[in-house]
């Protein structure tokens, strides 16, 4: 076990480069899936004839499939249909598709929990459905939704590690390269890898607790 050699600046910088990719992919996917998830959640809740049911069914399908399968399909399967994506775009797409479906459910539950009286009052005051949804219902639903949403985002950061199988140069892939070249680095690199993930995810969950306290105040 070579701790000193493992933690050389060269290796650590290589790991950090991986961390950068992990963060990039996570942030882009988070933003996209938040927006798409919100839209889908509203559609799902609104019970628009046929559309809601179809959207709901697709969301259920995606939520019940392993993310790994979605990644494989996006990267290896889509070219058959003429859709060709490079590795990073494929990873972001797959993550976004999966996380949007998960977020949609969170949004739907959150909106549902806000009393229907709010919607009625807003409509009675002359707002359109969409205005009422985004100006009245959403802000109140946010209180309930922020913890599960943030927890979903922590999941997303962790799930980026799955993209190592399509050679996305994220943190786990870089770590595997390092200990693949020198087996004495195995445990030190593992500790560093787990540590870095932990710092990022734990910080996000602290953020969640912070928001939780502020919102309940």
């Amino acid at each position: 076990m070579d701790w000193f050699g493992a933690y050389s600046w060269i290796n650590m910088r290589y790991l950090l480069q991986g961390l950068l990719v992990t963060i990039q992919v996570s942030v882009i996917s988070i933003i996209l899936s938040f927006i798409i998830g919100a839209v889908l959640g509203v559609v799902r809740y609104s019970k628009i004839k046929y559309v809601s049911a179809i959207v709901g069914f697709i969301i259920d399908l995606v939520r019940n499939l392993p993310l790994l399968l979605i990644i494989f399909f996006t990267y290896f399967g889509l070219p058959t249909f003429g859709i060709r994506l490079d590795i990073m775009v494929a990873a972001i797409t797959a993550l976004t598709v999966f996380e949007s479906a998960m977020c949609a459910e969170i949004f739907r539950s959150g909106i549902k929990a806000v009393s229907p009286g709010q919607m009625e009052a807003a409509r009675a005051n002359g707002m359109t459905y969409v205005q009422a949804m985004f100006h009245v219902v959403f802000p109140q639903a946010m209180k309930l939704m922020i913890p599960p949403l943030l927890s979903q985002f922590v999941s997303l950061v962790k799930d980026t590690s799955l993209a190592t199988i399509i050679v996305l140069p994220e943190m786990l892939y870089h770590a595997q390269n390092i200990y693949g070249q020198n087996t004495n680095y195995l445990i030190p690199i593992f500790v560093a890898l787990a540590g870095m993930y932990w710092v990022v995810c734990f910080s996000l969950s602290l953020l969640a607790k912070f928001f939780d306290k502020r919102m309940s105040a």
Partner: peptide
């Protein structure tokens, strides 16, 4: 600890 580390990392361990 285990809520903040990817499943894949734990498995590879």
């Amino acid at each position: 600890i285990f809520r903040n580390i990817p499943l894949l990392v734990v498995t590879m361990f």
